[in-house]
Design a protein around this nucleic acid. Sequence first.
DNA 1: TTAATGTTTAACCTATTGGTTAATTAACCG
DNA 2: CGGTTAATTAACCAATAGGTTAAACATTAA
Lengths: 123, 123
Amino acid sequence: MNDKLSMTFSALADPTRRAILVRLTKGESNVTELAKPFLKKMSLPAITKHLKVLENAGLIVKTKEAQYRSCEINTKPLDEATLWMDQCREVWVESFDRLDDYLKKLQNTKTNRGKKYGKGKKR
Amino acid sequence: MNDKLSMTFSALADPTRRAILVRLTKGESNVTELAKPFLKKMSLPAITKHLKVLENAGLIVKTKEAQYRSCEINTKPLDEATLWMDQCREVWVESFDRLDDYLKKLQNTKTNRGKKYGKGKKR
DNA sequence: TTAATGTTTAACCTATTGGTTAATTAACCG
DNA sequence: CGGTTAATTAACCAATAGGTTAAACATTAA
Protein backbone atom coordinates (compact mmCIF):
# COMPACT_ATOMS: atom_id res chain seq x y z
CA MET A 1 0.00 0.00 0.00
CA ASN A 2 2.19 2.78 -1.32
CA ASP A 3 -0.03 4.96 -3.47
CA LYS A 4 -1.35 8.19 -2.08
CA LEU A 5 -5.04 7.38 -2.49
CA SER A 6 -4.75 4.04 -0.73
CA MET A 7 -2.93 5.64 2.15
CA THR A 8 -5.59 8.31 2.48
CA PHE A 9 -8.52 5.90 2.47
CA SER A 10 -6.68 3.50 4.72
CA ALA A 11 -6.00 6.27 7.22
CA LEU A 12 -9.67 7.22 7.20
CA ALA A 13 -10.78 3.63 7.74
CA ASP A 14 -10.41 3.84 11.50
CA PRO A 15 -12.89 5.54 13.86
CA THR A 16 -10.22 6.75 16.26
CA ARG A 17 -8.29 8.41 13.46
CA ARG A 18 -11.44 9.97 12.05
CA ALA A 19 -12.35 11.30 15.48
CA ILE A 20 -8.90 12.82 15.79
CA LEU A 21 -9.31 14.54 12.44
CA VAL A 22 -12.71 15.93 13.40
CA ARG A 23 -11.20 17.14 16.65
CA LEU A 24 -8.51 18.91 14.61
CA THR A 25 -11.06 20.78 12.52
CA LYS A 26 -11.72 22.76 15.71
CA GLY A 27 -8.11 23.87 15.81
CA GLU A 28 -4.60 22.58 16.22
CA SER A 29 -3.69 20.56 19.27
CA ASN A 30 -0.84 18.64 20.82
CA VAL A 31 -0.62 14.91 21.31
CA THR A 32 -1.68 14.67 24.96
CA GLU A 33 -4.67 16.91 24.34
CA LEU A 34 -5.68 14.84 21.33
CA ALA A 35 -5.23 11.62 23.25
CA LYS A 36 -7.32 12.68 26.24
CA PRO A 37 -10.73 11.48 24.95
CA PHE A 38 -9.30 8.05 24.11
CA LEU A 39 -7.18 7.21 27.13
CA LYS A 40 -9.94 5.10 28.68
CA LYS A 41 -9.98 3.05 25.51
CA MET A 42 -6.29 2.91 24.62
CA SER A 43 -2.80 3.96 25.59
CA LEU A 44 -0.80 6.98 24.53
CA PRO A 45 1.53 5.00 22.26
CA ALA A 46 -1.53 3.76 20.42
CA ILE A 47 -2.43 7.38 19.72
CA THR A 48 1.13 8.12 18.63
CA LYS A 49 0.78 5.35 16.08
CA HIS A 50 -2.53 6.63 14.81
CA LEU A 51 -1.02 10.08 14.42
CA LYS A 52 1.87 8.57 12.47
CA VAL A 53 -0.61 6.95 10.08
CA LEU A 54 -2.42 10.25 9.61
CA GLU A 55 0.88 12.03 9.12
CA ASN A 56 2.11 9.52 6.54
CA ALA A 57 -1.13 10.01 4.67
CA GLY A 58 -0.52 13.75 4.75
CA LEU A 59 -3.74 14.33 6.65
CA ILE A 60 -2.00 16.06 9.52
CA VAL A 61 1.14 18.10 9.86
CA LYS A 62 3.14 17.95 13.06
CA THR A 63 5.34 20.80 14.16
CA LYS A 64 7.62 20.87 17.17
CA GLU A 65 6.88 23.51 19.75
CA ALA A 66 9.14 23.04 22.75
CA GLN A 67 8.15 19.71 24.33
CA TYR A 68 4.91 19.71 22.44
CA ARG A 69 4.02 18.37 19.02
CA SER A 70 1.39 20.57 17.53
CA CYS A 71 -0.85 18.76 15.07
CA GLU A 72 -2.73 20.54 12.35
CA ILE A 73 -5.18 19.08 9.87
CA ASN A 74 -4.39 19.16 6.16
CA THR A 75 -7.38 18.58 3.95
CA LYS A 76 -5.58 18.31 0.64
CA PRO A 77 -5.63 14.50 0.61
CA LEU A 78 -9.35 14.67 1.29
CA ASP A 79 -9.74 16.72 -1.87
CA GLU A 80 -7.99 14.07 -3.93
CA ALA A 81 -10.09 11.34 -2.36
CA THR A 82 -13.26 13.27 -3.08
CA LEU A 83 -12.14 13.82 -6.63
CA TRP A 84 -11.69 10.09 -7.13
CA MET A 85 -15.10 9.42 -5.67
CA ASP A 86 -16.69 11.98 -7.94
CA GLN A 87 -15.15 10.28 -10.92
CA CYS A 88 -16.54 7.04 -9.59
CA ARG A 89 -20.02 8.48 -9.35
CA GLU A 90 -20.22 9.29 -13.03
CA VAL A 91 -21.94 6.03 -13.71
CA TRP A 92 -22.86 4.82 -17.12
CA VAL A 93 -26.60 5.14 -17.45
CA GLU A 94 -28.37 2.81 -19.81
CA SER A 95 -30.42 5.16 -21.91
CA PHE A 96 -31.32 5.72 -25.52
CA ASP A 97 -28.90 8.64 -25.63
CA ARG A 98 -26.28 5.91 -25.67
CA LEU A 99 -27.80 3.87 -28.45
CA ASP A 100 -24.46 3.76 -30.26
CA ASP A 101 -22.69 1.96 -27.44
CA TYR A 102 -25.62 -0.36 -27.08
CA LEU A 103 -25.61 -1.39 -30.69
CA LYS A 104 -21.87 -1.98 -30.66
CA LYS A 105 -22.27 -4.30 -27.70
CA LEU A 106 -25.08 -6.11 -29.46
CA GLN A 107 -22.82 -6.58 -32.46
CA ASN A 108 -20.19 -8.21 -30.27
CA THR A 109 -22.54 -10.70 -28.69
CA LYS A 110 -23.12 -12.29 -32.10
CA THR A 111 -19.55 -13.61 -32.10
CA ASN A 112 -19.74 -14.57 -28.45
CA ARG A 113 -21.82 -17.75 -28.61
CA GLY A 114 -24.42 -16.95 -26.03
CA LYS A 115 -22.27 -14.94 -23.65
CA LYS A 116 -24.55 -12.21 -22.45
CA TYR A 117 -22.01 -9.84 -20.88
CA GLY A 118 -21.27 -6.86 -21.25
CA LYS A 119 -24.44 -4.81 -21.34
CA GLY A 120 -27.34 -7.20 -21.03
CA LYS A 121 -30.92 -6.32 -20.42
CA LYS A 122 -30.89 -5.07 -16.85
CA ARG A 123 -31.82 -7.99 -14.61
CA MET B 1 -14.13 -2.56 11.99
CA ASN B 2 -17.91 -2.76 12.06
CA ASP B 3 -19.15 0.74 11.36
CA LYS B 4 -20.35 1.63 7.90
CA LEU B 5 -17.90 4.46 7.30
CA SER B 6 -14.88 2.38 8.25
CA MET B 7 -16.00 -0.40 5.94
CA THR B 8 -16.42 2.02 3.07
CA PHE B 9 -13.04 3.67 3.48
CA SER B 10 -11.38 0.33 4.08
CA ALA B 11 -12.89 -1.08 0.91
CA LEU B 12 -11.62 1.91 -1.04
CA ALA B 13 -8.13 1.59 0.40
CA ASP B 14 -7.08 -0.98 -2.20
CA PRO B 15 -6.12 -0.16 -5.80
CA THR B 16 -7.57 -3.38 -7.19
CA ARG B 17 -10.92 -2.70 -5.59
CA ARG B 18 -10.90 0.92 -6.75
CA ALA B 19 -10.11 -0.22 -10.29
CA ILE B 20 -13.01 -2.65 -10.15
CA LEU B 21 -15.33 0.13 -9.05
CA VAL B 22 -14.16 2.42 -11.84
CA ARG B 23 -14.69 -0.43 -14.28
CA LEU B 24 -18.24 -0.79 -12.96
CA THR B 25 -19.04 2.86 -13.63
CA LYS B 26 -18.98 1.84 -17.30
CA GLY B 27 -21.74 -0.67 -16.69
CA GLU B 28 -22.49 -3.87 -14.85
CA SER B 29 -20.32 -6.90 -15.39
CA ASN B 30 -19.84 -10.45 -14.21
CA VAL B 31 -16.97 -11.79 -12.14
CA THR B 32 -14.84 -13.28 -14.90
CA GLU B 33 -15.12 -10.15 -16.98
CA LEU B 34 -14.17 -8.02 -14.00
CA ALA B 35 -11.28 -10.29 -13.15
CA LYS B 36 -9.80 -10.29 -16.64
CA PRO B 37 -7.51 -7.25 -16.27
CA PHE B 38 -6.06 -8.60 -13.03
CA LEU B 39 -5.44 -12.25 -13.81
CA LYS B 40 -1.77 -11.61 -14.60
CA LYS B 41 -1.42 -10.11 -11.14
CA MET B 42 -3.65 -12.37 -9.07
CA SER B 43 -5.97 -15.35 -9.08
CA LEU B 44 -9.72 -15.49 -9.48
CA PRO B 45 -10.39 -16.32 -5.82
CA ALA B 46 -8.49 -13.17 -4.93
CA ILE B 47 -10.97 -11.21 -7.04
CA THR B 48 -13.87 -13.02 -5.43
CA LYS B 49 -12.57 -11.85 -2.07
CA HIS B 50 -12.21 -8.27 -3.25
CA LEU B 51 -15.76 -8.37 -4.53
CA LYS B 52 -16.93 -9.68 -1.18
CA VAL B 53 -15.28 -6.73 0.55
CA LEU B 54 -16.95 -4.31 -1.86
CA GLU B 55 -20.27 -6.07 -1.38
CA ASN B 56 -20.02 -5.99 2.41
CA ALA B 57 -19.31 -2.28 2.19
CA GLY B 58 -22.43 -1.92 0.04
CA LEU B 59 -20.40 -0.53 -2.84
CA ILE B 60 -21.57 -3.20 -5.24
CA VAL B 61 -24.68 -5.29 -5.55
CA LYS B 62 -24.43 -8.80 -6.92
CA THR B 63 -27.37 -10.46 -8.61
CA LYS B 64 -27.51 -14.02 -9.87
CA GLU B 65 -28.07 -14.43 -13.56
CA ALA B 66 -27.83 -18.08 -14.51
CA GLN B 67 -24.21 -19.14 -13.82
CA TYR B 68 -23.13 -15.54 -13.78
CA ARG B 69 -22.94 -13.06 -10.95
CA SER B 70 -23.74 -9.66 -12.28
CA CYS B 71 -22.10 -6.85 -10.32
CA GLU B 72 -23.47 -3.35 -10.26
CA ILE B 73 -21.97 -0.34 -8.53
CA ASN B 74 -23.86 1.39 -5.72
CA THR B 75 -22.62 4.86 -4.98
CA LYS B 76 -24.64 5.49 -1.83
CA PRO B 77 -21.76 4.65 0.53
CA LEU B 78 -19.62 7.07 -1.44
CA ASP B 79 -22.12 9.78 -0.66
CA GLU B 80 -21.86 9.12 3.04
CA ALA B 81 -18.09 9.09 2.87
CA THR B 82 -18.07 12.38 0.99
CA LEU B 83 -20.45 13.85 3.54
CA TRP B 84 -18.06 12.94 6.34
CA MET B 85 -15.15 14.44 4.45
CA ASP B 86 -17.06 17.64 3.86
CA GLN B 87 -17.74 17.95 7.56
CA CYS B 88 -14.05 17.38 8.11
CA ARG B 89 -13.17 20.21 5.74
CA GLU B 90 -15.04 22.80 7.74
CA VAL B 91 -11.89 23.75 9.57
CA TRP B 92 -11.80 26.23 12.36
CA VAL B 93 -10.16 29.34 11.03
CA GLU B 94 -8.34 31.54 13.50
CA SER B 95 -9.81 34.94 12.81
CA PHE B 96 -11.05 37.93 14.75
CA ASP B 97 -14.62 36.91 14.03
CA ARG B 98 -13.92 34.29 16.67
CA LEU B 99 -12.60 36.66 19.29
CA ASP B 100 -15.01 35.19 21.86
CA ASP B 101 -13.53 31.71 21.64
CA TYR B 102 -10.06 33.15 21.75
CA LEU B 103 -10.69 35.12 24.90
CA LYS B 104 -12.26 32.12 26.61
CA LYS B 105 -9.18 30.08 25.86
CA LEU B 106 -6.97 32.84 27.16
CA GLN B 107 -9.01 32.88 30.34
CA ASN B 108 -8.39 29.18 30.82
CA THR B 109 -4.65 29.41 30.39
CA LYS B 110 -4.44 31.55 33.52
CA THR B 111 -5.32 28.54 35.66
CA ASN B 112 -3.11 26.27 33.59
CA ARG B 113 0.39 27.23 34.78
CA GLY B 114 2.15 27.83 31.51
CA LYS B 115 0.35 25.26 29.37
CA LYS B 116 -0.01 26.87 25.98
CA TYR B 117 -2.62 24.54 24.39
CA GLY B 118 -5.47 24.93 23.11
CA LYS B 119 -5.41 27.77 20.73
CA GLY B 120 -1.93 29.23 20.87
CA LYS B 121 -0.45 31.86 18.63
CA LYS B 122 -0.07 30.00 15.34
CA ARG B 123 3.57 28.90 15.15
C1' DT C 1 -25.61 -37.77 -18.17
C1' DT C 2 -21.39 -35.68 -18.89
C1' DA C 3 -18.44 -31.90 -20.04
C1' DA C 4 -17.49 -27.20 -19.79
C1' DT C 5 -17.88 -22.74 -17.75
C1' DG C 6 -18.44 -19.49 -13.89
C1' DT C 7 -17.85 -18.74 -9.14
C1' DT C 8 -17.09 -19.72 -4.42
C1' DT C 9 -15.17 -22.17 -0.45
C1' DA C 10 -11.55 -24.35 2.29
C1' DA C 11 -7.21 -24.51 4.10
C1' DC C 12 -3.24 -22.42 4.42
C1' DC C 13 0.61 -18.74 4.49
C1' DT C 14 2.82 -14.16 5.27
C1' DA C 15 2.72 -9.34 6.16
C1' DT C 16 0.35 -5.67 8.24
C1' DT C 17 -2.55 -3.50 11.74
C1' DG C 18 -3.74 -2.06 16.13
C1' DG C 19 -2.96 -2.73 20.46
C1' DT C 20 0.02 -3.57 24.81
C1' DT C 21 3.91 -2.47 28.52
C1' DA C 22 8.42 -0.86 29.54
C1' DA C 23 12.12 1.95 28.44
C1' DT C 24 13.99 6.07 26.23
C1' DT C 25 14.45 10.68 24.53
C1' DA C 26 13.52 15.64 24.87
C1' DA C 27 12.48 19.90 26.93
C1' DC C 28 11.22 22.63 30.57
C1' DC C 29 11.16 24.25 35.52
C1' DG C 30 12.32 24.93 40.41
C1' DC D 1 21.25 19.36 38.77
C1' DG D 2 17.16 16.55 39.32
C1' DG D 3 12.34 16.00 38.72
C1' DT D 4 8.32 16.38 35.87
C1' DT D 5 5.87 16.40 31.69
C1' DA D 6 5.48 15.29 26.61
C1' DA D 7 6.12 12.08 23.25
C1' DT D 8 8.33 8.35 20.91
C1' DT D 9 10.59 3.90 20.40
C1' DA D 10 11.25 -1.07 21.22
C1' DA D 11 9.66 -5.48 21.71
C1' DC D 12 6.06 -8.10 21.68
C1' DC D 13 1.26 -10.17 20.61
C1' DA D 14 -3.35 -11.42 18.45
C1' DA D 15 -6.32 -10.55 14.77
C1' DT D 16 -7.05 -9.29 10.07
C1' DA D 17 -5.94 -8.64 5.19
C1' DG D 18 -4.58 -10.25 0.95
C1' DG D 19 -2.80 -13.67 -1.42
C1' DT D 20 -2.16 -18.75 -2.82
C1' DT D 21 -3.72 -23.70 -4.61
C1' DA D 22 -6.98 -27.29 -4.67
C1' DA D 23 -11.52 -28.71 -4.27
C1' DA D 24 -16.44 -27.98 -4.51
C1' DC D 25 -20.61 -26.14 -6.21
C1' DA D 26 -23.98 -24.37 -9.86
C1' DT D 27 -25.65 -23.86 -14.24
C1' DT D 28 -25.68 -24.43 -18.98
C1' DA D 29 -24.87 -26.99 -23.28
C1' DA D 30 -24.02 -31.11 -25.87
